[in-house]
Simulated scan of single mutants.
Amino acid sequence: MKWLEAELEDTLDEDFEIEFSEPMLSMEIRKLYKSQNPGMLDRRVYFRNLLRLQAELIKLQDWVQHTGARVLILMEGRDSAGKGGVIKRITQRLNPRVARVVALPAPSRREQSQWYFQRYVPHLPSGGEIVLFDRSWYNRAGVERVMGFATEDQVEQFFQDVPEFERMLKRSGIILLKYWFSITDEEQQLRFLMRIHDPMKQWKLSPMDLESRIRWEDYTKAKEEMFARTNIPEAPWYIVEGNDKKRERLNCIEHLLSQIPYEDVPSEKVTLPDRKYNPEYERQVLPDELYVPKVY
């Protein structure tokens, strides 16, 4: 029992470590953030429900493996909207051989000369896989359009092609879910300030992020047209409100689970076999220089 308790404590420590997202802020910015978000979800309620939902995600994973289902989840939204945090909680306890994350860099010159969707196709799920895109082909309707990386003709071609492309994915049997993470203008500004003043998060703030802050209204207009032209019955958009990160994570996972018809699958009882013991074997003593120094 003591060993089991120690293992549970390690699991909780892991949870606390991954949830340790309080930035190293000045007291002034910390007070400002809390005053802007007075009704944030209680941590005990959050952890209790997160563990419950992660247990359900494991059931979903088992069902996907058992049935050979293919699940594709697109995560889109403004910079600092919380996509990465949601993805991290979804995949935290899943088998990385089953659930994998795709976050593609900017296209190379060769990729720019290809059919637009070509670079995404190799990453689509095979049987028994869950794939989460941390940004997807919708870059063309968002950042590429707003920042001038795509011409208006290319954007228009994208809007004509993407509904049929997604219908093809659905006809092939892929379960496709599209999420947009929404935060307010004021919330994004606060999160950017937090990144500027937190040395552990400054790497998250790129020149493109700063430019996106300037072009908030342009991104809003682009998002509105994207919804209008790509919200099709076969692959609708789902908007997740993200000002409260804890509610954002729980609501998204709860909805995701509700959209997939998974069920418990039969599994064999696991028993630990006895270790073979050779009384004539004597374990060798390894030299000290092979060991990592015990600093702690």
Rank of each mutant, 00 (worst) to 15 (best):
I175Q: 11
F16A: 15
P199D: 05
M194G: 09
L124C: 03
M208Q: 12
E76G: 07
D10H: 08
R171E: 14
L176M: 07
L51E: 02
Q154P: 12
W63Q: 10
H66C: 11
Q36D: 13
S26F: 00
Q188L: 03
T220P: 00
G68T: 07
H123Q: 05
A106N: 06
L205P: 06
Q157M: 04
F47K: 06
L176T: 05
D218F: 02
P273R: 03
I87C: 09
Q259M: 14
F47M: 09
K269T: 15
A235F: 12
Y138N: 08
Q284N: 06
A222Y: 09
A222T: 07
L210S: 01
T230H: 03
F165L: 05
D185M: 08
L74K: 09
E28Y: 00
L4I: 08
L4P: 00
D79V: 02
V146R: 12
F192I: 15
F16Y: 15
D134W: 00
Q61M: 09
G148E: 01
Q112G: 10
F47E: 04
S108N: 01
K31C: 01
P293D: 06
Q36N: 15
V162W: 02
S206N: 10
P122E: 01
R213F: 12
W3V: 05
D185P: 08
K83C: 09
V131N: 07
S258A: 14
L169R: 01
E166R: 08
V162T: 07
W3E: 03
E144G: 05
K245T: 06
Q61L: 05
